[in-house]
């Protein structure tokens, strides 16, 4: 590196570049927040959905599953499970765990009430209606 390029110039470029791109990021974030209501299905957030999300979190579902592709990769994608399996299957599935089949991956029994399970399903339905730019590629997630 040439000798005329002093450390203080390098430092200025660092601060300048850092601030520049952070500001750009904030501008994009601002625009994203403005556009989101047309895409994020937030008009369908009901108290049931909110409670369902809380149950999703406090039972650490993300520790095995993915939701919109994020999470662990141990168990199926659930962002579109409402479409793939439908509400009745999901309810029966949650109640039926663990399967106890030897050697198979096991999902714990979370002892949720019927009302709780309805809320989890409401949350998964809400999640399935978010505009994800056509992801996943097919119904299998």
């Amino acid at each position: 590196m040439s000798a005329t390029f002093t450390k203080s110039m390098a430092r200025n470029v660092f601060y300048g570049g850092g601030v520049f791109f952070f500001l750009l990021f904030l501008a994009l974030t601002f625009d994203t927040m403005k556009v989101l209501p047309t895409r994020d299905n937030s008009q369908n957030i009901t108290p049931a959905v909110a409670h369902g999300k809380k149950l999703w979190e406090t039972n650490n579902c993300i520790g095995c599953h993915t939701l919109l592709g994020e999470g662990a990769y141990f168990a199926p994608e659930l962002g579109n499970v409402y479409v793939r399996r439908g509400p009745d299957f999901i309810k029966a599935w949650i109640k039926g765990q663990p399967t106890g089949v030897p050697g198979r991956r096991q999902m714990p029994q979370f002892n949720l009430s019927d009302a709780d399970i309805d809320d989890v399903v409401a949350f998964l339905k809400y999640a399935s209606e978010i505009n994800t730019n056509k992801w996943p590629p097919n119904i299998e997630g």
Partner: peptide, 8 residues
Amino acid sequence: GDFALWIF
């Protein structure tokens, strides 16, 4: 100018 700036 300086080489490092040209990198950027």
